[in-house]
Design a protein around this nucleic acid. Structure first.
Lengths: 229, 229
DNA sequence: CCAAAAGTGTTAGAGATACACCCATGG
DNA sequence: CCATGGGTGTATCTCTAACACTTTTGG
């Protein structure tokens, strides 16, 4: 491919809003920029797209390079391309929205040389470029999807208690839920498998552990079933 | 702005899936390509983004240039950027999803020199590039949003009968609706204004006309109210 | 035995669904 | 007067929301 269309070619990046649950709080993963512009500022992890890789592949590559994160839920959020969002030249970014499971893949502050850290998703530091807008859009999307799709299980350990699940929804959606109604509803979908294992080391009655049954969810969604918290 | 980041710069386009209601059918607006690649094939209207205009402005400009369409509902669908989606060079496109009101702005087959035409949204001709994928994604989005947001009024004339509204939903969602329940529900939101005008020239009892009250909808949505068909 | 969280059912109300007939108009 | 679509109400059912006490365990 040598041909180039006779039109301006902007730079193209991907940026990822990566969410995780840490100490019961919703966190977002940020990196400290090592280069101008915005050197030293916190930003969403991301970088330039190579010509031979898909947008999603670029997002995964950048995430692994900058933060060591490998297995995650990833979905495109949209393109952000206001002229002037980068002071140097026109840069259009394709934003992704991601979830890492910090139980399976414990947080590491960063990898390689770059500094990466987890921040409260609702109270991030001042961000480079228009990343505050992107983060806000990602949070909106996250909250919207959580209500209607079983994304919560991307955040939780493979085996979890119903109380853990409830706390998660309460934290992220910011509203208390009724314990009995919550359990009734969430069990009614038949997408949770009751394990014969119990919470360990609690100073009170041990709670039964459950596992998300992805096949059951696929069957449910295939039969037009819905999920809603 | 002279600086260019030392990374590859792909070409950037916008493409629009423009929907409209014509003769009671959901249609999509396509243009015939006058240039290679895919010369002569049908494609979503779109084109290259200028360096000094926003993505949305580019979408609006291309729509007006290619099809004469000016007033419309426009929302970003997402970026499509598989390597190889354009045979000549790497081209990333930002897809938009749009609705034109063909009652207010009657269909014109095209403007200027380019040939534009409306096709059945569910049975489009073979499309250039990956435009079939984009159209499919846009249709999914349209059907999803129609159920939960009052987008139907973007398609209908300013003053419409409840039967027209019901037919629209039935056509687009592909399922019959109960007349009494439909009316009860749609009126219950309080976002329709009953006019003192009636359908003209029908060979039967004339139906009362209604108008979408956007302010009432804004108030409803501000108070956490929902809309669902 | 005390503190802490787990676990469990019932009732009332709201919203969704199913369903059939008379009315007004134009031709 | 007839054909065509306009317009209306009720009964049932399902889903949601409110609500409090007993059980288990570890310390």
């Amino acid at each position: 491919m040598e041909y180039r269309y006779p039109y301006p070619h902007p730079a193209l990046t991907v940026d990822c809003a990566v969410f995780g649950l840490d100490e019961g709080r919703l966190k977002v993963l940020l990196v400290e920029r090592g280069e101008e512009p915005y050197k030293g500022a916190w930003a969403l992890p991301g970088g330039f797209v190579r010509l031979d890789e898909s947008l999603e592949a670029a997002a995964l590559r950048e995430l692994e390079e900058e933060t060591g994160v490998r297995e995650l839920y990833l979905e495109q959020l949209g393109a952000f391309g206001e002229p002037g969002r980068d002071p140097r030249e026109r840069v259009v970014t394709v934003a992704y929205f991601a979830i890492v499971n910090l139980f399976d893949h414990p947080a590491r502050g960063g990898s390689d040389a770059s500094a990466a850290a987890w921040f409260e998703a609702d109270a991030p530091p001042r961000l480079a470029f228009d990343h505050a807008d992107i983060l806000a859009a990602a949070l909106d999307r996250l909250r919207g999807k959580l209500r209607r799709e079983p994304l919560a299980f991307e955040f939780l350990p493979r085996a979890f208690t119903l109380t853990q699940l409830q706390r998660f929804y309460e934290t992220v959606l910011g509203a208390p839920l009724d314990k009995r109604n919550f359990r009734k509803k969430v069990l009614s979908y038949g997408i949770l498998e009751e394990l014969d294992e119990f919470e360990a080391g609690a100073a009170h009655r041990a709670a039964r552990l459950h596992r998300f049954d992805r096949d059951a969810w696929e069957r449910l969604r295939a039969s037009e079933g819905s999920y809603s918290v």
